[in-house]
Design a protein around this nucleic acid. Structure first.
Length: 436
RNA sequence: GACCCCGUCGUCUAGCCUGGUCCAGGACAAGAGCUUUUCAAGCUCUCGACACGGGUUCAAAUCCCGUCGGGGUCACCA
């Protein structure tokens, strides 16, 4: 039975790197029909905060990584002490009292030897432990150190595969020594390459957002983020980029993960998010958008026309990079007074188009049916009569109606805006009293 | 600095294990154009890489060695 674990420390948010480690562990567990164990590494009493535990758990849930078990290191101090005592009485560890420390620390005597470890991703890695100092097991305040708690936990929780970041590779010989000293069976190790920022080095806040919750706030879909993370250091083959998580479970294999560190590229994530956004069910997308629209005062809590909203979502869906783009781009559908972008006004509405606008309004009034096809037909006939280019009128009308030079097709916009609002917005640009 | 890991287009990668089918394929980005309704969507095209140097071999991105480059770790943090 495969048992893997993800062991975050609640001293901060769940970040991109952690999420990717969680993803690969979760995938491996699901692929092998094993268990995915969560272990909260909260031995640092000062820096660990319960709100970070909540934040991490919520982010994992949002990403869709359900866990089978959860444990907290802070509840296992007795166990760590028990094993430390064993090493002490076996003569493999000793106590030390430092003048500036409260109590005695328990320290592991590091035996000098060569260690060969097998890594599922990298193959054989060799270390000479003579360069490693004796390791503190239990600190003088009675709490265990990371490497010790980690070994005791992984062994006693029957973890079969330790899948973690590359940065732990040099912890592995230290831990291997502890497994041997304690008589524990060694798990299999797989060290994932790190995710780096665009400017090189570790992904950091300077380079961009690192917290998963930030990506959620920025309007990324969890499926898109997971798919993007999946493609960092792993590829399903056959030039496939968009891979459904259930498909990934079938195809994933840790041993095929790359060895090279990957750079986090927001542009590709954006593309990926757009792919998922355009394929997402419009009803579902509307549901995701509703809270934000209510918050902005764009729609009412009680009197919202869901069908109408879904139509608008469909209009913008292919273009959205993030969920948050929708309220920004579709704002003109929800407010009475359109905010006209000054640049757009200068570009498209600086000349007097009173006559053209008035004639267009007349066309709209004469339509047998106010629908997209008829609106376009009316417009086309007007342009023909005026003997002008379509775009000479389309762009000014778009700016007058939406305040923007870009957006969905104009005739759809007019249809969903409705005749009255369209006329009202056009009349503002008709000199000498538009009677709309 | 010591130790460890890594090195294919700007970025993510396929190919490497099992040398020839690779004058290296795909995706993102970028650039150009088309879409005579914009683009933030769509379509088409272009640009662009085996880090370098030695071997081994009839043949090397693929195997070996060295150099260089990048990253990580060296805490009574995790």
């Amino acid at each position: 039975m495969v048992r893997v674990r993800f062991a975050p420390s609640p001293t901060g948010n769940l970040h991109i790197g952690g999420a990717r480690t969680a993803l690969f562990n979760w995938l491996y567990a699901r692929a092998k029909g094993g268990k995915f164990v969560l272990r909260i590494e909260d031995t640092d009493q000062v820096r660990s905060k319960p709100e970070f535990v909540d934040e991490i758990l919520n982010s994992l849930k949002w990403l869709g990584f359900d866990w089978d078990e959860i444990g907290y290191q802070s509840k296992r101090f007795d166990i760590y002490n028990e094993y430390a005592q064993k090493l002490l009485s076996a003569g493999k560890a000793y106590k030390e009292k430092l003048p500036d420390k409260p109590g005695e620390a328990i320290i592991f005597k590091v035996p000098q030897q060569k260690i060969k470890m097998q890594d599922l991703i990298r193959g054989e890695i060799e270390f000479d432990t003579s360069v490693i100092k004796d390791q503190v097991l239990i600190k003088s305040d009675g709490t265990p150190t990371y490497n010790f708690a980690c070994v005791v936990d992984d062994a006693t929780m029957d973890i079969t595969h330790v899948i973690r970041g590359d940065d732990h590779i040099s912890n592995t010989p230290k831990q291997t020594l502890l497994y041997e000293a304690l008589g524990f069976k060694l798990p299999k190790f797989a060290h994932l390459p790190l995710i780096m920022g665009m400017e090189g080095g570790r992904l950091s806040k300077r380079t961009g957002a690192t917290a998963i919750s930030d990506y959620r706030k920025m309007g990324y879909l969890p499926q898109a983020l997971v798919n993007y993370l999946l493609l960092l250091s792993w590829a399903p083959g056959n030039n496939v980029e968009l891979v459904d998580i259930n498909e990934a479970i079938k195809l994933f294999d840790v041993t095929q993960v790359n060895k090279t560190a990957a750079t986090f590229d927001l542009k590709k994530l954006n593309w990926m998010n757009n792919q998922y956004l355009k394929n997402e069910d419009s009803e579902k997308l509307a549901d995701i958008l509703i809270p934000g629209l209510i918050e902005k005062g764009y729609i009412g809590k009680d009197n919202l026309d869901r069908g109408y909203l879904v139509s608008l979502v469909k209009l913008f869906q292919p273009r959205l990079t993030t969920i948050n783009d929708f309220p920004d781009w579709a704002d003109f559908f929800f407010v009475e007074e359109v905010k006209i972008d000054p640049e757009a006004e200068k570009k498209c509405l600086s000349q007097d188009l009173s006559n053209e606008f008035r004639l267009f309004v007349e066309k709209l009034d004469k339509l047998a049916e106010f629908d997209i096809l008829n609106i376009e037909e009316g417009f086309r006939s007007l342009v023909k009569e005026l003997n002008i280019e379509s775009k000479a009128l389309i762009h000014p009308i778009r700016v007058a109606l939406t305040g923007k030079t870009i957006g969905p097709g104009l005739f759809e916009v007019i249809y969903y805006l409705g005749k009255e609002r369209t006329k009202k917005r056009l009349s503002r640009w008709i000199k000498g009293g538009g009677d709309a």
